[in-house]
Amino acid sequence: MSVHVVSVIGSSPGVGKSTLCRAVAEWLAGTGASVDHFEEADILTRAAFRPVAEEFAGGEAAVRPETLIECTRAYVDEMVAQGTDYAVTDALVPFIPSLVAWGHQERTLSRVMGELVRALEPAAQVTVVYVHDDPTRALRRAVQREGETWADWYVRKLAASPGTRTVHDLPSAAAHLHAEADLTLRLLARTPWQVLTVNVGTRTAQETFACVRDHLTK
Rank of each mutant, 00 (worst) to 15 (best):
M1T: 12
V6C: 07
V6A: 03
S18A: 09
C21L: 01
A23W: 04
A23I: 03
G30A: 10
A33K: 14
S34M: 08
S34L: 11
H37L: 14
D42F: 07
D42T: 01
T45S: 14
R46Y: 05
A47S: 14
A48K: 07
R50P: 01
R50G: 11
V52N: 08
V52Q: 07
V52C: 10
E54N: 09
E55D: 05
E55G: 01
A57Y: 08
A57I: 00
G58C: 08
E60W: 01
V63W: 01
V63C: 02
V63P: 00
L68G: 00
T72C: 06
V76R: 01
V76C: 12
E78M: 07
M79V: 00
A81C: 03
G83V: 04
G83A: 09
D85R: 13
D85N: 14
D85I: 06
A87V: 10
A87C: 10
D90C: 06
A91Y: 02
P97I: 01
A101G: 15
G103N: 08
E106L: 07
V112D: 04
V112C: 09
G114I: 12
G114Q: 12
V117T: 14
R118G: 03
A119I: 04
A124G: 15
A124N: 03
Q125L: 11
Y130T: 02
Y130L: 15
H132E: 15
H132G: 02
D134Q: 10
D134Y: 06
P135S: 11
T136E: 14
R137H: 12
A142I: 09
G147I: 11
A151L: 09
A151R: 13
D152W: 00
Y154K: 12
G163S: 02
V167Y: 02
H168A: 11
P171H: 07
P171V: 03
A173Y: 00
A175M: 04
H176S: 05
H176Y: 15
L177I: 09
A179K: 12
D182L: 15
D182A: 14
L188Q: 07
L188V: 02
A189M: 05
T191E: 05
T191N: 08
T197A: 13
V198Q: 04
V198R: 05
G201P: 06
T202L: 13
T202K: 12
A205W: 05
E207L: 06
V212E: 06
V212T: 08
